[in-house]
Design a protein around this nucleic acid. Structure first.
Lengths: 177, 177
DNA sequence: TGTACATCAGTGAACGCGCGTTCACTGATGTAC
DNA sequence: TGTACATCAGTGAACGCGCGTTCACTGATGTAC
């Protein structure tokens, strides 16, 4: 749907660059994103990106922000689907999102966030994600424990640290309930 | 104690390089480690490292392995201290280790592990870490939930994602019990 | 309706950088006889 | 005890690479009168 890899045609180059960078993110992780390669994939000269982003970090921040939006939408959709109590549905959606878009997921909670003073919008987005998780969680500490669990399982699954379980999906349904 | 930054003197260059790389790991994370900079810090020419490691990935793998050893020791020491039931003590030690040595922690469960076919020793080490956690955990699924929780809280704390709580140490004691 | 001008998105050459890795080498240490 | 030789750890010059970023530029689009 969204990440076409063709050169853009008179469209919105900013969006095309973000799409390209997004793809890089999922292919090679954090360090695989470069302005030059994103421009290459968008079919544009190496320096065109500077029309739309102050520097590389600005591109990454925009990417992370976009990630949080998609993330929030995915969680809301999972709750709306009503297949499980809201709290359970959100937890499962959290892990599924991470597995589907590992690069995005890692960037969202990654090094940029640690330097959050420079990226207040990012910090706000992550706070909001936590607030959403907190609903129906049985208090703040319970919410933190739950957040920790889904966040940790997501990372462990992504890193291949969990001894083989067959399907990750089954594991998610068994553990998050 | 271990990570001296002085040029080594006729000692074990391999260990000196690992120490230097370890320091880089904690200063700048995964991507901040370079053979050249490690050699520089060890006071040695840029290519000396190739006497001791086949390539950069071999250095990183050795670093991760060393990390798992320190990690196992930290968990065992925490249990032996007896301040809390073993399962609780291990969980707390897990998070404390991550906070004390973020670079190590991230590397241990990071990208190398995902390509574990190339690094069987690493995979074995992470399996063993899980087995240790599993003791007194109330079954395999309970152990996975617990592992997820401590792993996730460690990451969230490292990334500054958890809204300020004052002391991380207090948070650990309150949540892991 | 037509002309003059400003705005702005993308170009392409160029910079300096640090990196991983190779290669032939030097000089010290140790071993064989 | 002394000499000849092999081993081996570290050197330093060199390679090619992709990167972020700058700069002066071109050419199209839009606006003012």
């Amino acid at each position: 749907m969204s990440t076409t890899e063709k050169p853009y045609h008179h469209g919105d180059l900013r969006a095309a660059l973000l799409d390209a960078a997004d793809a890089l993110l999922d292919e090679g992780g954090d360090g695989a994103v470069s302005l030059r390669e994103a421009a290459r994939r968008a079919g544009v000269s190496p320096t065109a990106a500077y029309r739309h982003f102050a520097d590389k970090e600005a591109l990454l921040a925009a990417l992370a922000l976009r990630g949080f939006e998609a993330f929030g939408a995915a969680m809301a959709a999972a709750v709306a689907a009503g297949d499980a109590p809201p709290y359970v549905a959100r937890g499962r959606a959290y892990i599924r999102f991470a597995l589907a878009r590992p690069g995005r997921f890692r960037l969202m909670f990654g090094p940029l966030l640690a330097r959050s003073a420079a990226h207040p919008a990012l910090l706000a987005a992550s706070r909001q994600a936590f607030l959403a998780l907190q609903a129906n969680a049985g208090g703040r500490d319970g919410a933190l424990r739950g957040w920790g669990m889904v966040h940790g399982l997501a990372h462990l699954l992504l890193d291949g640290a969990i001894p083989d379980e067959g399907s990750a999906e089954l594991l998610i349904e068994r553990l998050i309930c």
